[in-house]
Simulated scan of single mutants.
Amino acid sequence: MSFDLNLLLFWAIAAIAAWVQTLTGFALGLILMGATGALGLMPVPQAAAITSLLVLVNAVIVLSRGWRDVDWPALKMVLLGAIPMLIVGFYLLHFLAGSALGLLQLLLGVVIAGSAAQLAARPKLRETRSPPITFFLSGLIGGTMGGLFATTGPPVIWHLYRQPMPLAAVRVTLVSVFFLTQILRTGLVISSGGITQSMLISAAGAAPSVVLGTWLARRFPPRLETATIRKTALLLLFLSGISLIFSAIGKLG
């Protein structure tokens, strides 16, 4: 990939995604994958690989301060479900990328639009903690999504925010899930020979963009309410997902 407008736009989207995630606590991967897919900036496997790297950058910044708040039992059960299905999802992505690009784009659109709709519906807080098996099941679904599109979050986010846990524990546990699953995903990319020069160039500019977006959100928080930013981001995510779905249906038809 040369230094063209698409590359600069990808870096800008990475900064915006990190800014939104720092303020709202969700969806760096969803924003980056949704915008990249809707605008056609790069192939889905490459975008997912770079997204994994950027999630790691953001997670290191967050966990360097708050790792002591991790809910270890929840993290363990989510990872037990997520890790095997992430591997399945990763190899499914490469199968579809080689044989069914239209179907892959349709899946991405459904994941983006569905995740935005799910995150827009605030989960009702439970009075008691859910059974451990439910954390495992949320990990199964999230791991599949993480393997396909580097977006482990939505099912796990929805489930953890229903629990009677301190918000700090929920947020840091989620970041820990993202961090550990994307380490695995990045390892799969490396082992499969998926690291290319164009990917390294894209990541080299996007990583500082993520750091910049995170710093700006902390140093100069906007006057807008976080809820307004969240609603706007979810609406744009939903629209990008719908755009991907209609585009894919046109190709499949």
Rank of each mutant, 00 (worst) to 15 (best):
Thr196Met: 05
Pro155Val: 06
Thr144Cys: 00
Val210Tyr: 02
Pro131Leu: 01
Ser198Pro: 05
Thr232Arg: 01
His159Ile: 15
Ser209Ile: 13
Arg219Asp: 11
Met165His: 10
Ala169Glu: 07
Arg162Gly: 11
Lys124Asp: 07
Pro221Asp: 11
Thr128Phe: 01
Gly153Ala: 15
Gly146Thr: 05
Pro132Asn: 05
Ser240Pro: 03
Gln197Ala: 12
Phe178Lys: 02
Gly187Asp: 10
Phe238Gly: 07
Glu127Trp: 01
Phe220Asn: 09
Val175Ser: 09
Ser130Gly: 06
Leu148Ala: 09
Phe179Cys: 13
Ile201Ser: 06
Val172Arg: 02
Leu140Trp: 02
Arg122Glu: 11
Pro132His: 04
Leu180Pro: 13
Val175Phe: 03
Pro154Ala: 07
Val175Pro: 04
Arg230Pro: 14
Ala207Met: 14
Arg126Ser: 05
Leu140Met: 12
Ile133Pro: 01
Gln163Asn: 08
Ala120Ser: 12
Ser115Arg: 04
Phe136Pro: 08
Arg230Tyr: 08
Leu224Cys: 13
Lys124Glu: 14
Pro164Asn: 01
Ile201Phe: 08
Arg171Cys: 11
Ser192Trp: 12
Ser240Phe: 14
Ile195Arg: 01
Val110Gly: 05
Gln182Met: 11
Thr134Gln: 13
Ile112Val: 14
Trp158Val: 15
Gly187Tyr: 05
Thr151Ile: 15
Phe149Gln: 07
Ala204Val: 07
Glu225Lys: 14
Leu237Phe: 09
Val210Leu: 04
Ala217Phe: 02
Leu235Arg: 10
Thr181Asn: 15
Phe149Arg: 06
Ile157Asp: 11
Gln182Gly: 06
Gly193Asn: 07
Gly143Phe: 03
Arg122Gln: 15
Ala117Cys: 03
Ala233His: 13
Leu174Lys: 06
Leu148His: 03
